[in-house]
């Protein structure tokens, strides 16, 4: 599913974000990526959907060789991945329904846009808010819409970068339950997070990154070293 072999990433400004990362994430796994700010978490995440290109090493995601992926093929990779962000990244002028349908429209899907969109909204429990604009929704609801958008293409991998970073604890749990259900239906979930409480309660595999290296990789781990 996701395979990294001795991956290095240097930025043009001289920062060395990743220094020899090797990891394997299998199908239907749920993985937390933890570590202090600036440790390389974001780079790690961005490499998976080819927002960044590795300086050295091999990355395979859903059978795509990230380092050698032609830019023409990047859209195909991204259609097999759903991405969720801390700031939701919804389009303010579009309704909840339109935001979700947008993901289908722009990849040129013609068939069943309506059915699939409503299905996704149902799945996150917001079918009744379909006509609301993002500003009329709470933070938690907005993130649910973003999750629905990430899911609507039936991706095999969901990547989330601090999805609860902007939400209060109660709302965060609602979102986490959503990711848990996504994982239950066989979708791989990779989540970068700072939320200690969640990581320690909803026990999953934990990959800790510090100074560009994996310092810990524990199944059913905790946020800090025990």
């Amino acid at each position: 599913m996701i395979e990294m072999q001795n991956v290095w990433k240097d930025y043009p400004n001289g920062t060395s974000a990743l220094q020899g990362i090797s990891v394997h994430i299998g199908k239907a796994e749920f993985v937390y990526v933890v570590g202090p700010s600036g440790a390389g978490k974001s780079t790690f995440i961005k490499l998976m959907y080819r927002e960044e290109n590795p300086t050295k090493g091999e990355i395979f995601v859903n059978g795509f060789n990230i380092g050698r992926l032609k830019s023409r093929k990047i859209p195909l990779l991204r259609r097999s991945i759903g991405v969720v962000f801390q700031d939701f990244k919804l389009l303010p002028r579009l309704t909840a329904y339109e935001n979700v349908a947008f993901a289908l429209e722009v990849i040129g899907a013609h068939r069943q846009i309506k059915r699939r969109t409503i299905e996704a909204l149902n799945w996150v429990g917001l079918a009744d808010r379909a006509d609301a604009l993002p500003e009329q929704l709470s933070g938690g609801e907005q993130q649910r819409i973003a999750v629905a958008r990430a899911l609507v293409n039936n991706p095999t991998v969901i990547i989330a970068d601090e999805p609860t970073g902007n939400l209060d604890p109660d709302t965060s749990w609602g979102i986490m339950k959503l990711f848990s259900r996504i994982n239950d239906r066989g979708t791989t979930v990779v989540m970068a997070t700072h939320n200690k409480e969640i990581v320690n309660s909803l026990r999953k595999r934990v990959i800790a990154i510090e100074n560009g290296r994996i310092v810990r990789d524990v199944t059913k781990g905790t946020y800090d070293e025990d």
Partner: peptide
Amino acid sequence: REIEIMKLVGATDWFI
């Protein structure tokens, strides 16, 4: 912003 999201969900360059 729209362009960013289009790229993230896998719209082709020409579509954008």
